[in-house]
């Protein structure tokens, strides 16, 4: 695919005898929202870990924007514009919401060997951070300590931080995990707004959200990609139905 932003080829990761990623192939087009679904233990988080650079694959390659990044360290990938959110909320609890996001802005505003000026007062950091909070609907909580925010707000904040890095592509690991119906709806709304503007790789268990949002879906089972296509194609795919969707009756009615 000529216009692919992310191309994954032959990615394999073994943990002892367990093959968590088995020759995974994947390409994500620019501006696309690409979802990865699969039953528990299918290797979705391991895949994200390899794309973000935390886990080194045994074989295979990852290309981002035409560049081979298979061996690139985590911070460098972020600087190229590949941002991730975490499945388990991973924030800075003793910082306010704005400070959390400002830190993400700072990471992409040159080196941080600046020892003198109070960073919390720098408008070049605060303003983009405020804008990112605005986009996820958290402006009113800017000065709240992260530790005293709700789980739903944490998920929004995770997203704001990924946005604030100026990312071109987001790797979202179950952004809706543990959210109530209202919060889920708000997250879907936020993602819909981001769609088209950013390229998004979404891992999600909430099938309703996935089928509503995704341009394309890749199905992962036991570390292998068994199908890839539009939501309609995936829903009609016999192998997918058998391997995965069949377990969840509700999905066939979506």
């Amino acid at each position: 695919m000529a216009d692919a932003l992310l191309i994954v080829e032959g990615l394999t990761k073994r943990f002892g005898g367990v093959v968590a990623s088995d020759n995974v192939r994947l390409d994500v087009a620019r501006g696309e929202l690409h979802a990865i679904i699969g039953p528990n233990g299918a290797g979705k988080t391991t895949l994200i870990g390899q794309l973000a650079g935390e886990i080194a694959p045994n074989t295979g390659s990852v290309q981002f924007d035409g560049r081979d990044i298979t061996a690139l360290p985590v911070p460098d990938r972020s600087l190229l514009g590949l941002a991730r959110s975490f499945q388990i909320t991973s924030l800075f609890p003793h910082f306010t919401a704005l400070e959390n996001v400002a830190l993400a802005v700072q990471a992409h505003a040159g080196h941080s060997f600046r020892f003198w000026r109070p960073a919390r007062e720098e408008s070049v950091l605060r303003e983009p951070a405020g804008a990112a909070l605005e986009r996820v609907g958290l402006s009113h909580r800017a000065d709240t300590l992260c530790a005293s925010m709700s789980h739903g707000e944490h998920r929004q904040l995770e997203l704001a931080m990924a946005l604030a890095t100026g990312a071109r592509m987001l790797l979202l690991d179950e952004p809706m995990a543990g959210l109530g119906p209202d919060e889920s709806a708000r997250m879907v709304k936020t993602l819909r707004q981001l769609k088209g503007e950013l390229t998004i790789l979404l891992i999600e268990h909430d099938m309703e959200a996935v089928f509503a949002l995704a341009d394309r879906i890749t199905v992962l089972v036991y570390g292998r990609t068994i199908a890839s296509g539009t939501p309609t194609e995936i829903r009609a795919n016999a192998e997918v139905r058998q391997a995965y969707l069949g377990e969840q009756e509700a999905v066939s009615h979506v």
Binding site: P73, S78, S90, H94, L103, R114, A119
Partner: peptide
Amino acid sequence: RLVNSRFGLVIQGARSNERRMRAIGFP
């Protein structure tokens, strides 16, 4: 001055959550 500067926030962020610091782009 140091702990409140950009440098200091990186240091404090790394104490709080180093994995996340790397993920947002800090070596």
